[in-house]
Simulated assay, not measured.
Amino acid sequence: MENLNRRDVLKFSSGLGLMALGVSAAPAVTSASPPAASGVMLCRDAWGARPARAGGRPHTIDRMTIHHSAVALPDNRQIAARLRQHQRYHQDDKGWVDIAYHAAVDREGNIFALRDPAIAGDTATDYDTTGHFLVLCEGNFDEETVTDAQLNGAALVFAWATKQFGITTATLASHREVTPVTSCPGGDLEAHLVSGDLKRRIDDLLASGFALNPVCGAQAERIVAAIQAGR
C-alpha cells in the first residue's frame, strides 16, 4: 500500500444514526462535513496491544453496536496509552480474553484495530454480544462533545463492517438500545444516533464508495508516534 501522510490519516468523516431507548427531546443533529472516502485502520501492534488470550466465543457478525468508554479523553495524545489501559483492565480485572471491543475511534478520527472480529466482544451489562461488531468511541459523551472527526471515523469503520460481514446499516444500534440499563454511549453521542446522522454518513459512504485499509508495522508506528506528539 502506498504511504499515507498524516493529513490522509486524519481525514475521517462520519455521523451516527439510530433510534435509542430512554432518550427524550434529543436535539436535531446534522452532519458538519461529508464522510471521507478513504482511511486506514491501525493494527494492534501500533498501539502496543498484548496478545489475546486463548479462548473466547467464535461468532458470526450480523449487527453493529457503538459504545463509549465513559472516561473523558481531554488529551488525544494519550489514546494509545488509554487503549492499553482498557486492555489491562479487561484481561486482568475482568478476566476476558482481550480488550472488549473490535475497533476504536479517537477524537481525531483515527481508527484502531482491537479484538479479532471473529471472537464475540464482552460487556459488563446484560446483553449477549454474540453477532455484534463493537466499535468504541473513546471519551465520555455524557460530559464531552463528540467531534465531527470522531463521528466520521465511526462511520467509516461501520461502512467497512457492512461490506466485510455482509450486513446492513439497519442493524446499527447503540449500547443503550440493546440494553436500557446503561447510559452508554453518552447523551451527546446518542443524539447523533437518534437523529439518524451516523446512519446517513454510513449510507453516504456506501453510496459513493470508500476504502479502509489496514496499516501495520513501521508505518503504523510512525502514525501513532505522530498522534502521541500531537502532530
Rank of each mutant, 00 (worst) to 15 (best):
V9I: 15
L10P: 00
S14R: 15
G15M: 01
G17Q: 01
L18G: 09
A25R: 14
A25Y: 05
P34F: 01
M41R: 12
M41G: 07
R44Q: 09
A46C: 09
G48A: 02
R50T: 08
A52I: 02
G55W: 04
G56C: 14
P58H: 08
M64Q: 09
L73P: 03
L73E: 06
D75W: 04
A81E: 10
A81P: 03
Q87F: 03
Y89I: 06
Y89V: 06
H90D: 14
Q91L: 07
Q91D: 00
D93Q: 15
D98T: 00
A100D: 06
A103G: 01
D106F: 01
I119N: 05
A120D: 07
D122A: 14
T129E: 12
T130F: 03
H132C: 13
F133A: 05
V135M: 09
E138K: 00
E138I: 12
D142A: 12
V146A: 12
A149F: 00
G153V: 00
A155I: 05
V157N: 07
W160A: 10
K163A: 12
Q164M: 11
F165N: 06
T168H: 11
T169I: 08
T169Q: 11
A170W: 03
T171E: 15
T171L: 12
R176Y: 01
E177W: 06
V178A: 13
V181T: 12
S183N: 05
D188Q: 11
A191Y: 01
L206K: 07
S208G: 10
A211G: 07
V215N: 01
R222Q: 13
I227E: 06
Q228L: 07
G230M: 10
R231D: 15
